[in-house]
Amino acid sequence: MPKWGMVIDLNKCTGCGACVNACRMENNIPVVGAEAAQDGRTMDWMQILTEYDGEYPNVRITHIPRPCFQCGDPPCVKVCPVHATFVNEDGLVGQVYYRCIGCRYCMNACPYTAKCFNYFKPKIPEAYEILLNPDVTRRMNGVVEKCSFCHHRLALAKDTARYEGRELTEMDYQTACLESCPTQAIVFGDLDNPEHEVNHLMHSNRAFRLEESLGTQPKVYYLKREDK
């Protein structure tokens, strides 16, 4: 079974935010509005964290794109009371919007704060309605949502491959965030398959995972920044 994962090169990431926006477009993520944003309720499945090192004027800023890490031993799955978040057969951590009761326990259990919550009925500005992706469920008020590694694309890719009578290749299933990355900082594929690029990159000596000592087995590797 393929182990879908990502490798993000922190040398290449410029913090432009194209991945954030591509994800918003792909996954019908609602716009919360200025007031809710000030209250800290912005909804983004992909977020860019900023690490500041040093004092002005010698500050080094590292931008870290943070999707859901689809952990191998997810703390969020352990605590869900209704099986709304679970590990599906593709090894990804799924989220069933129709079963979620909105207790937000999974949000608190995630050590990476990767999930977000619909505090109001989600709104898409009228001008964007035409851009909604028909492959992705629109969520409702009061449920938790998170990055799904564009799982709808995997379903489509599997169907296409089955229809064409072949196996899935590396380029069949790629997430939306990496497609828009101008520096190709994000690479996606099967971590266990030696033919996929992620498999080489994850064994690089620059590779690390966030909060690895917690034992969550995240599937997103980062390549450390090298200073010239």
Partner: peptide, 8 residues
Amino acid sequence: DLGRPDRI
């Protein structure tokens, strides 16, 4: 506290 008490 639930976001969806109708689904209790």
